[in-house]
Design a protein around this nucleic acid. Structure first.
Length: 119
DNA sequence: GGTCTGACCGGCG
DNA sequence: ACGCCGGCCAGAC
């Protein structure tokens, strides 16, 4: 939605990817997680999963973007190290009802929320 | 203005 | 089964 960009090209034209990532992550249901590759695939660039993580880097400061709900393909909290306290990520996930052990999401397959399938 | 890195993924050896 | 390499996009030095 939105994606207005005000047709202002001299502001930030290359935020297409980031904006999409933020939106998708923001739409992640509570108690549900997704992977970088899933988002990338939803955007049409499954290869650029790295970029998704990079987008999170800019989003981690935005509380509207639950980066803690985004994990890698292994269901491992790879980005937990980037949080204020790293434990905040799994703590948040646990608060959402997701079991996290050793930085690994339990029942990941069941908790997995694929935007490509949902959206 | 060119080069490297970065919270990944998938394929190949 | 494990390890390494290439690929995509964008930002920082």
């Amino acid at each position: 939605m939105k994606s207005k960009k005000t047709a202002k090209n001299n502001s930030k034209p290359t935020y297409n990817f980031f904006d999409d990532v933020f939106e998708v992550v923001r739409l992640i249901p509570k108690g549900r997680v997704t992977s970088y590759g899933a988002i990338a695939k939803y955007l049409g660039t499954k290869m650029s999963a790295r970029m998704v993580g990079w987008a999170m880097n800019a989003a981690h400061g935005d509380k509207k973007v639950p980066a803690h709900r985004v994990v890698n393909r292994n269901g491992l909290l790879t980005g937990k190290h980037h949080f204020s306290p790293p434990s905040a990520m799994e703590a948040q996930l646990k608060k959402e009802g997701i079991k996290v052990t050793k930085d690994k999401i339990q029942n990941f397959s069941d908790r997995f929320w694929d935007p490509y399938l949902e959206l």
